[in-house]
Amino acid sequence: MRIKPEEVDYIAALSRLVLSDQEKNMYARHLSEILEHAERLSELDTDDVEPTAHVLPLKNVFRDDQVKPSLERDILLSNAPEVENGCFKVPRIVE
């Protein structure tokens, strides 16, 4: 397998996920399969191909600098686990 369980650990930590050993093994297998699948592309000769960031034939889609009404705060905060003083309340993140 290309992806080892330790690498799954690292990726999980970046995404703040806690995984069981069983899940780690499963994701290691899944991620490896995805990479192996994508690796087939390297069979093609791409020396003369510009890197592609987007496949749509679109560019420069902009809007004018105009203010429109924002959401009602009560609606915005309705999904918040905890609210205080009109703010989202989260566990303290600095010492």
Binding site: L76, E82, N85, C87, F88, K89, V90, R92
Partner: peptide, 12 residues
Amino acid sequence: HEGWGNNSLVDY
């Protein structure tokens, strides 16, 4: 961060 004990408040 200040004044909210074990919490922080977020203003987006």
